[in-house]
Computed example of a mutant assay.
Amino acid sequence: MPCTFITHPEVTIEPMARVEDWGLSAAGRARAAHAVEVVPRPAHVVVSSAERKARETAAVLAAALGVEVVVDRELGEMDRSATGYLPPDEFDVTVDAFFAEPTSSIRGWERAVDAQRRIERAVRRQLTNTRDSVAFVSHGGVGGLLLASLTGAPISRGLDQPGLGSWFTFDPGTWRALSGWQRLD
């Protein structure tokens, strides 16, 4: 049964708060409601990152599907606590370097290869006890790393989501992507 990887939509940016504590914006909540349209049925469970924006997205999806939410800390975005909030231009340059140098810690961030292993481990662990579809709700950076693993491609910014609130499907049995990124509408 195909599974779906969904990233949280738009957030309310709070530069003085931890990034993990940012919640969905009004537009993000509205777009999160569309996630139910992309999940194959029957859906067994929604598995979410522990970060607030992902949990809020997962809660909307789980309520629409009538399933529970399981929180898995290993589905969290790459650890970038060494820098905290970065202005958009500085953030984009740092993310470019994160993907371009996957075996290096950029500005103290978690290495891309380590984040990729973590997300693979979390997804595989969550799939061990079900044959039904599982919806994973997480973040764009780790989704790009998972997509690289599922396609056998090297880690690259070219595999990053096209924008907040994106998704792809994959076959957990063959560990292959069934689609590329698409946007929630």
Rank of each mutant, 00 (worst) to 15 (best):
V95A: 13
D92P: 02
G180H: 10
R107M: 04
F136H: 09
E77F: 00
A100N: 01
T169A: 09
F98A: 04
R107F: 01
I106M: 02
Q116F: 03
R183L: 14
F98K: 04
T130G: 09
R131S: 13
A27F: 08
D132P: 11
G76W: 07
A32E: 08
A59K: 08
M78L: 12
S104K: 08
T83R: 04
Q161D: 06
A135H: 08
P162H: 00
I119E: 06
T103F: 08
P172F: 06
Q126A: 14
V47C: 05
L159W: 00
E74S: 15
D132C: 13
A17V: 08
I106K: 03
R73Q: 11
G143S: 02
S149Q: 08
Q182Y: 10
T128E: 13
T130C: 05
D21V: 07
S179G: 06
E77Y: 01
L75C: 05
V123Y: 02
A153E: 10
T174W: 03
P2F: 11
L184Y: 10
E68F: 06
F91E: 14
L147W: 02
Y85L: 04
G141K: 07
A43Q: 00
D79C: 05
L75F: 08
R73C: 09
A54C: 05
L127D: 06
P162Q: 03
C3A: 15
G158C: 00
R31I: 14
A97C: 01
V113P: 02
W109G: 00
N129G: 15
V113A: 07
D21I: 04
V93Y: 04
T83C: 00
M78S: 13
R52N: 06
G66T: 05
S105C: 04
V70Y: 02
F99G: 02
F91H: 10
D92W: 13
S138T: 12
R73Y: 10
V113L: 11
A58N: 04
L127S: 07
R55P: 05
A100Q: 01
S25E: 06
S49I: 06
T130V: 09
D185V: 11
R176Q: 12
V134L: 13
R107H: 07
P87D: 11
L24Y: 00
R124E: 07
R117A: 15
V113H: 10
T83H: 03
I6P: 08
S104A: 09
T130S: 14
S133V: 12
V46Q: 01
E14L: 15
R125Y: 09
